[in-house]
Amino acid sequence: MGIFSRRGGSEPPPVHGPFRFVVEEVFVVPVRGVVFTGHVLSGAICSGQRARLPLPAGVRAVTVKTIEVRRRRRGRAAEGEEAALHLAGVTAADLPRDLAAGGAVLDTRPLRGLEITEG
């Protein structure tokens, strides 16, 4: 590999334990859908893999559509990395609403700190 290789010759980080991702923020992106940002506590996840999302209304089975690490699309996120996960199987309608705003505004505060796990 040359010095200008996209891979840079580095090996993926080692994986320890099952996949656990802690949610720091949630965004609803027009056309794209719901994106969860945070960091991988343990394990690794790949695009196309199934996961479990613990929403206030109950646990939802989802599929990882795309992953971004450092603002670049990747096929995998592993332990220690900050990432954005676009999940199929959840929409903006599934997220909590702020009742003080008449239920018209998304309230992502209850989602912060949730752990997405492999499923």
Rank of each mutant, 00 (worst) to 15 (best):
G80I: 04
E79A: 12
M1L: 12
G38E: 10
L114H: 10
R6S: 15
M1C: 12
E82H: 12
V90S: 05
E115H: 12
T91D: 11
A88G: 06
V40E: 04
S47D: 05
V26N: 08
I67C: 02
A57P: 03
G58T: 00
P110C: 07
R74D: 14
R76Y: 01
E24D: 06
P56V: 10
R71K: 15
D98C: 09
V64Y: 00
G119E: 07
E68Y: 05
E79Y: 07
E79H: 07
T108F: 05
V69C: 14
R70F: 14
A51D: 06
A61G: 10
A100P: 03
V59C: 12
G75A: 01
G8V: 04
T66W: 01
A93L: 12
L95E: 10
R70A: 10
L95Q: 13
P30E: 14
R72I: 06
A101G: 04
E68L: 10
A61E: 15
L106K: 09
F19G: 02
L55S: 08
H16W: 01
R71I: 00
E115F: 09
I116S: 05
R50D: 11
T91P: 04
G9N: 13
F19D: 03
E118I: 00
R70P: 01
A44N: 00
L114W: 01
L55C: 07
R52H: 08
A93K: 13
P96K: 07
H86N: 13
A101D: 03
H86R: 12
A44S: 15
G33T: 02
L55P: 07
V35Y: 12
G80D: 06
G48Y: 09
D107P: 02
V105P: 05
R71P: 05
G48L: 06
G17D: 09
M1S: 14
E68R: 13
L111D: 09
R72H: 11
H86C: 14
A84D: 04
R72Q: 15
T117Q: 02
G33S: 11
S42R: 03
V15E: 14
V15N: 08
A77T: 08
L106E: 07
S42V: 03
G17W: 11
A88M: 09
G33P: 02
A84N: 05
I67L: 06
F4R: 12
I67H: 00
E24G: 06
S10N: 05
L106T: 06
A93T: 09
I116M: 04
E68Q: 15
V69N: 07
A104S: 12
E11P: 00
S47R: 12
R112Y: 00
T63I: 13
P13K: 09
G80V: 08
A44Y: 00
R73G: 10
G8F: 01
R97T: 04
V59T: 14
C46H: 13
A88Y: 02
G75E: 10
L85F: 03
H16D: 08
A61V: 11
A88E: 15
D107N: 11
T91Q: 10
S42Y: 01
P110W: 01
F4C: 05
A78L: 05
E118P: 00
T108S: 11
G80Y: 03
F4E: 14
R32D: 02
